[in-house]
Simulated assay, not measured.
Amino acid sequence: MTTIHIWHTGEVYIDRALAYQEKTIHPAPHTGIFRPSSKKSWLPVSAYFINHPKGNILVDTGWSETIRNNPRGHLGLVASALFKGKLPPGQSVREHLETIGLKDTDLDFVLLSHLHLDHVSGVEHVRHAKTILTSKPEWDAANKDLGYIRSMWRGVPVQTFELEAIPFGPYNKGVDLFQDGSLYLVHTPGHSKGQFTVMVQTSKGWVLLISDVGYSRRSWTQLVLPGAITNKEEAIQSLRWVQEFSLRDDCRRIIANHDPEVAPQMIT
């Protein structure tokens, strides 16, 4: 039986325009620069532990424990000026794993949906997992483009997967992780060049962990894009696919990473 644990691994303080794209005279409202605090809020930073018949899987890694005492050193001057993060005691991925009696060496896969700071910050805590994996397009972009903090994965043995033909997704690209149709990494670009959705088969239907394809149910029901995107057409295609999939009889649940309405829980 597959179970999915939704963990909150801290919070991030962002402008609402980063979650939901706005039409405004401000050239980059998602940065929060020159925007009042009334337009900003704390949102959860999630990670997911999947106990699958073929292995233990962690999806994303939330904040590093370093954010507690050295946020500027961890994020750098620019990012620390734009974003705030907090990590209460017991909420790092290392601490969550300890709570269920596991260490990073017990993880068969760490899947990094994309390499933005609030998704990869805590990868240092799981560096001894058997396989740490992200997509080749995301890895290539993260190691040459702006918007990434490469020191977060320096020295971590990140591996990549090539996009293959699969029966799901806006572009029918990704990978069948166990080659048995039970768990897919679905290419859903737009917010970043190589972002992927984790698609998990349960006894009651599919659960989609959509990362930042959208920030909440409002995103896919109303087709509201995130404020930060690398390609508008791809972002729309990815979000529209989520919307269409949500209407399927075999869709059990769709979970966005920063949705304040999603509480920590276990899906069996």
Rank of each mutant, 00 (worst) to 15 (best):
A19E: 04
A19R: 10
A19H: 01
Y20G: 00
Q21E: 13
K23N: 08
K23L: 08
T24S: 15
T24A: 10
H26V: 02
H26Q: 07
P27V: 10
A28R: 14
A28M: 11
T31L: 15
T31A: 02
T31D: 04
T31W: 04
G32Q: 03
F34L: 13
R35S: 06
P36D: 06
S37R: 11
S37K: 13
S38M: 05
S38N: 02
K39T: 13
K39Q: 14
K40F: 00
S41K: 13
S41V: 01
S41E: 14
S41T: 08
S41H: 10
W42N: 12
L43V: 13
P44A: 14
P44W: 10
P44F: 10
P44H: 11
S46V: 06
S46Y: 05
S46G: 15
A47P: 05
F49H: 15
I50L: 12
I50E: 09
I50N: 10
N51C: 12
H52D: 13
H52S: 13
K54D: 14
G55H: 06
N56V: 05
N56I: 03
I57T: 11
I57Y: 09
V59E: 07
V59R: 03
V59W: 05
D60G: 06
D60K: 11
T61H: 01
T61C: 15
G62Q: 07
G62C: 07
G62H: 07
W63V: 04
W63N: 07
S64L: 08
S64G: 02
S64A: 11
S64Q: 02
E65G: 06
E65W: 00
T66P: 00
T66W: 03
I67F: 01
I67P: 08
R68F: 01
N69I: 05
N69T: 15
N70K: 14
P71G: 06
